[in-house]
């Protein structure tokens, strides 16, 4: 217990770091995933290709490798940003590929007749997508998107290896101070549990409110 009470501010900083990473990267992943899913079902061929390449590259690259690519690669092209921002970029882009595919599978659950009816009324592609198809697709993707964001929260631990302050990284500081490594990890695990359970709770509420009624 001492390890927690003695080092509350270290744990607190790490916990807040993980929360920040998770929130910002989630927002980026949701926004990019939404755009890429729109690209993948767009009537314009080059958009579809772009979306497919985006998903193929990001989903098939190990996240650690992606962190190296972003943190070491981008500065070579003159783009120098705080490590926290790089970490959000890497995490957000990586997760956007999974969000995109979840959304796309949701789009496929909406009967084609819905889109045809909208187009026959004279709605444009973007009106059809935003007004008719996506609102119905969202209902069936609430749970897979929730799982993807929980995975994102846990994946954020990799950022610790790149000197971003986050929860898992606290074990190094505390280990050096001679605290029991086992208890340190127990408290770290509990910290992650708080974050992931909070995400589950939010998505359970969303599903109750908006999920497919059967």
């Amino acid at each position: 217990m001492d390890v927690l009470t003695d080092n509350f501010s270290t744990f607190g900083d790490g916990f807040l770091g993980t929360v920040e990473l998770t929130v910002y990267a989630s927002l980026l992943a949701l926004a990019l995933g939404f755009v890429m899913a729109s690209f993948r079902v767009a009537p314009v061929g080059s958009f579809r290709v772009f979306g497919a390449v985006w998903v193929a590259v990001l989903r098939n690259t190990p996240l650690t490798l992606l962190f190296f690519a972003v943190l070491l690669g981008l500065p070579r092209f003159g783009l120098v940003l705080p490590f926290e921002v790089f970490a959000v970029l890497a995490l957000g882009c990586y997760t956007s590929a999974f969000i995109c595919e979840a959304l796309r599978s949701g789009i496929n659950t909406v009967p084609t007749g819905q889109g045809e009816a909208a187009r026959s009324l004279g709605m444009t592609f973007s009106q059809t997508l935003s007004g008719v198809v996506l609102p119905q697709a969202f209902r069936s993707v609430i749970s897979p998107v929730g799982s993807t964001l929980i995975a994102l929260a846990k994946n954020s631990a990799i950022a610790g290896a790149f000197s971003v302050t986050e929860l898992l990284g606290t074990y190094k500081t505390l280990g050096e101070l001679g605290y029991s490594i086992i208890w340190t990890f127990v408290w770290i695990a509990l910290g992650y549990l708080i974050i992931t359970l909070a995400i589950s709770a939010v998505f359970n509420i969303l599903e109750k409110r908006w999920g497919v009624a059967r």
Partner: peptide, 24 residues
């Protein structure tokens, strides 16, 4: 396919075999 087609489609009403009312 595009804005012009959308405009023209709005002048043509269509009724489908499976109704296709917006479920939401």
């Amino acid at each position: 396919e595009g804005k012009e087609l959308a405009r023209l489609r709005s002048e043509v009403g269509m009724v489908f075999q499976s109704f296709n009312l917006f479920a939401h």
